[in-house]
Simulated scan of single mutants.
Amino acid sequence: MTKQLRTVEKQGPTTKESPVTPIRPNVAARLFEEAQAIELEDATRAGMTGFMGRALVQATLPYREPDRDLPVWGRVAGNTSLIIKPGYYANQKTNQLESMGYPYGTIPRLLLAWIGTEAVRTREKHLVLGKSLSEFMNGLGLTAQTGGKNGSITRVREMMKRLFAADMAIVRGEGKGGGDFASSKFSIAEETALWWDPQKPDQAGLWQSTVTLSDKFFNEIVSTPVPIDLRALKALRQSPMAIDLYCWLTYRNFSLRAPTTVPWEALKLQFGSGAGAEKKFRETVKRALQQVMEVYPAAVTPTKGGLFLEPSKTSVPRLIKDW
Score class of each variant (00 low, 15 high):
126 H>R: 11
127 L>Y: 00
130 G>R: 01
131 K>G: 13
131 K>C: 03
132 S>P: 04
134 S>Y: 08
134 S>I: 06
135 E>P: 07
136 F>W: 06
137 M>Q: 07
139 G>R: 02
140 L>G: 04
142 L>S: 07
145 Q>H: 02
150 N>S: 13
152 S>T: 15
154 T>D: 05
155 R>L: 12
158 E>T: 08
158 E>M: 04
158 E>H: 07
158 E>W: 05
159 M>K: 08
160 M>N: 00
160 M>S: 06
161 K>M: 13
161 K>Y: 11
162 R>T: 06
163 L>W: 02
163 L>N: 03
168 M>K: 06
168 M>P: 01
171 V>H: 01
174 E>N: 14
178 G>N: 13
179 G>T: 05
179 G>D: 05
182 A>S: 15
186 F>C: 04
187 S>Q: 07
188 I>H: 02
188 I>R: 02
189 A>T: 00
189 A>L: 00
190 E>I: 01
190 E>V: 02
191 E>Q: 09
191 E>A: 05
192 T>H: 07
193 A>G: 12
194 L>H: 02
196 W>M: 04
198 P>G: 09
200 K>L: 14
200 K>F: 10
200 K>C: 12
201 P>Q: 02
201 P>Y: 03
201 P>C: 01
204 A>M: 06
204 A>L: 02
207 W>F: 14
208 Q>E: 12
209 S>Y: 02
210 T>I: 08
212 T>I: 10
213 L>D: 00
214 S>N: 05
214 S>P: 01
217 F>H: 09
217 F>Q: 01
218 F>G: 03
218 F>N: 04
219 N>L: 06
222 V>F: 08
225 P>C: 09
225 P>L: 06
227 P>Q: 10
231 R>N: 08
232 A>R: 10
232 A>D: 09
233 L>H: 07
233 L>D: 09
234 K>C: 09
235 A>F: 03
236 L>A: 06
236 L>V: 06
236 L>I: 11
236 L>F: 08
238 Q>T: 14
239 S>C: 08
241 M>R: 15
242 A>R: 08
243 I>F: 11
248 W>L: 06
248 W>Q: 11
250 T>D: 14
251 Y>Q: 15
252 R>H: 15
252 R>P: 11
255 S>F: 13
257 R>E: 15
257 R>D: 14
258 A>C: 05
258 A>P: 04
258 A>Y: 14
